[in-house]
Design a protein around this nucleic acid. Structure first.
Lengths: 193, 193
DNA sequence: CGGTCTCTTGACGGAGTTCAAAGCTAGTGG
DNA sequence: CCACTAGCTTTGAACTCCGTCAAGAGACCG
C-alpha cells in the first residue's frame, strides 16, 4: 500500500483523505507465475498496480506466434486500456512472468474515485501523459532504428530489467524473431560489443 | 470556439464557468500552409486545438528523410507532449499541411486551468486515454501486419483523410517508402483491389 | 509554358524471417 | 544428488519483403 501512496504522491498533490479513498477500493492479490489476469475474448474489468513481480501483455498474431505488447514491473498500472475504458472485448492477454503482488482496482471503483477526487483524477492524467510520451518515443524508435540499434537502446535503457526475462520474450517485444536476436548477440560477442 | 466547447462536452461534464475559463486563456491563430508551429531544437510551449485544416508532426531520421509521426485534423490537440510536459528540447517539427485555424493554449495556462477546474482536468485525462489506446493499437498493427495490410487498414479506417494528403506523406507515416507504396497500388490496380 | 513537386517503374541489394536441427540450461522428481 | 525432460538459445541455408538508386512520366502552379 505504501508503495502506491508514494507513487501517487510523486505525481499529484493528494490529501490523506484521497489516499484513504483509493485504499478503500483496491484489494491486494497474489498472482502465481504463469497465471493470467486477462485472456483474449474477455472484458478487462480491472487495473492492476504492481507491488512486486513482472508481467507481460501479448496477443497471438496472424502467424500463430505470441506478440508481446508491453511489460509491466513494480509501480506500473497494468491493464488493457482499450477494453477497460470502452468496456469492449479484449484482444490481448495479461500474464504474470514472476510471482506477483498487485493492487486490484475495478472499473466502477475507478470511475467513482476519479469523479470524487480531483487529485486522484489528476494523478491518472499525469501517468497517462507519461505513458503517451513513452508510446510516442517507442513509435519513433521503431521507425528510426535497425533491429540491432533497437536492441542496444533497450538494453542500455533497461539494464536491470533485461536480466529478468528470457531473450525470446525480449525479441518478441522488440518486434523480431528469437533467431535474429541470437544472431545480433553472436555478432556482438565476436566483434567485442 | 464552439467547436472546442462541443469537443469538451463530449468527453467531460463541464459547467459554463469551465468553458469561460478555457475561453479566457486560448487564442485563435491562423496558420498558413507549410508554416511551422514547432521546429526541432526548440521547446514546445503550446498545445494547439485544430478548428480547421490539417497538420503533421515529423522528424528527420538517420538517413536524412522526413519521418512523419502523426497527423492532426479538426478536433485534435496537436503538440509534442514530450517537450510540452517535460519542458525539454523537442526533437520533432509540427507543420501545417493546409491553411489552418487553431486555438493556442500555453503550458502555464494549461497548468493553471487543470488545477483550477477538475472538469477540464478530467477532459484532458479522457482524451489522453483515447490517445494511449490509439497508440497501443498502432503499435499492435505495426507488429501484426505487412505493409500492404497496414496500407489497406489505414485507407479503410480513414477514407476521407487519405484524400487530403499526398501519397508520399502517407507512406512516411505508415513506415515505408513512396516507391513501395506505389508498388502496392500498382498491384491492387492490376489484380482489381 | 517552364519548373518544381509528386508518382511510377525496374534492377539490384540487404535486413530480417523461416525452417529444421542441434546444443544448452534449469527445474523437477526419483 | 543425479538424470531426465521441457524450455530456451544457437546455427546455417534458403527465402521474402521492402529499401535503394536512378530514370522517367505526370501534374500542378506561377
Amino acid at each position: 500500500m505504501e508503495r502506491l501512496f508514494e507513487h501517487i504522491n510523486k505525481f499529484s498533490e493528494v490529501s490523506e483523505e484521497d489516499l484513504k479513498l483509493i485504499e478503500s477500493v483496491v484489494s491486494k492479490k497474489v498472482i502465481q507465475k504463469k497465471d493470467h489476469l486477462l485472456t483474449t475474448g474477455h472484458k478487462c474489468h480491472h487495473k492492476y498496480f504492481i507491488l512486486s513481480g513482472c508481467m507481460r501483455s501479448y496477443f497471438v498474431n496472424k502467424k500463430g506466434a505470441e506478440q508481446i505488447v508491453n511489460f509491466g514491473i513494480e509501480n506500473w498500472w497494468m491493464t488493457d486500456y482499450d477494453s477497460f475504458v470502452n468496456e469492449s472485448i479484449s484482444h490481448i492477454n495479461i500474464q504474470a512472468l514472476e510471482n506477483c503482488e498487485v493492487l486490484r482496482l475495478s472499473k466502477s471503483d475507478f470511475d467513482d474515485i476519479v469523479s470524487i477526487s480531483p487529485a486522484l483524477n489528476n494523478y491518472f492524467r499525469v501517468i497517462l501523459e507519461k505513458r503517451h510520451i513513452a508510446d510516442q518515443r517507442r513509435i519513433q524508435y521503431m521507425f528510426n532504428m535497425s533491429g540491432e540499434e533497437i536492441f542496444d537502446h533497450f538494453n542500455n535503457s533497461n539494464p536491470d530489467f533485461v536480466q529478468r526475462i528470457p531473450q525470446y520474450m525480449l525479441a518478441s517485444y522488440l518486434g523480431f524473431t528469437p533467431e535474429f536476436l541470437s544472431k545480433i548477440r553472436k555478432k556482438k560477442a565476436e566483434t567485442g560489443s
